[in-house]
Amino acid sequence: MREYQAWCFDLDGTVYRGKEPIPETVRFIRGLREKGAGVFFVTNNSALTPEQQSEKLEGMGITAAPEEIMTSSVATAEHLLKNHGALPVSMIGEEGLRTALESAGHRIVRESPDAVVVGIDREITYGKLADASLAVSAGALFVATNSDKAYPTERGLVPGNGAFAGLIELATGVSPFYIGKPSVPMLETLADRHGLKKEEMIMVGDNYETDIMAGIRFGIETVHVDTGVTRTEDLAKFGEQPTYALRTLDGWTEN
Rank of each mutant, 00 (worst) to 15 (best):
E254W: 04
F218E: 02
R30F: 07
V204A: 10
A65I: 00
L170K: 12
D12W: 15
L80K: 15
I212M: 01
A64S: 03
R247S: 09
G205R: 06
T99K: 15
L141Q: 06
A144T: 12
A64F: 02
G195L: 03
A104N: 06
Y178L: 12
S90P: 02
R107T: 15
E200S: 15
L80A: 09
N45G: 09
T189P: 03
D192F: 02
R30A: 09
T76N: 07
K198V: 01
A104Y: 07
A245S: 12
E78G: 07
L81P: 09
V174M: 02
P159V: 06
F40A: 11
D192L: 06
S90N: 12
L101K: 11
G85P: 11
Y16K: 04
H84K: 08
A6Y: 12
K149M: 10
I202K: 09
L141H: 08
L87A: 12
L80R: 14
R247C: 01
Y244M: 11
S90Y: 15
V136K: 05
T253R: 13
P66G: 03
M186G: 14
A214P: 00
L32Y: 05
L57S: 12
I22H: 02
T232V: 00
D114F: 11
Y178E: 03
N146L: 05
E209R: 11
P21V: 02
E209W: 03
N161K: 00
S133F: 00
L11G: 15
R107A: 13
E102N: 08
G31A: 06
P21C: 01
R98F: 13
V225P: 00
S137G: 04
G228P: 10
A100N: 13
S112C: 06
A140E: 01
G205S: 05
A214Q: 01
T145W: 10
S137F: 02
I120F: 13
T172G: 07
K56G: 08
F218K: 01
E111G: 00
I212E: 01
G219L: 13
G127R: 10
E67D: 13
I69V: 14
L81R: 14
R17M: 03
T43D: 02
G85Q: 14
T63Q: 03
L141E: 12
G239P: 01
I108Q: 07
A115I: 08
I120D: 09
L170V: 13
S54Q: 08
V116I: 11
V89K: 15
P66H: 04
G180Y: 10
Q5G: 08
S46H: 07
A104Q: 05
A100T: 09
R30D: 06
R98S: 13
G31W: 12
D148R: 04
T172I: 04
E24H: 14
E58A: 14
T222P: 03
R27A: 10
G173W: 10
P185S: 00
N44C: 12
V89M: 11
G219Q: 11
V116G: 12
F164G: 01
A37Y: 14
G61S: 11
E154S: 13
A132N: 01
T253A: 15
E233M: 02
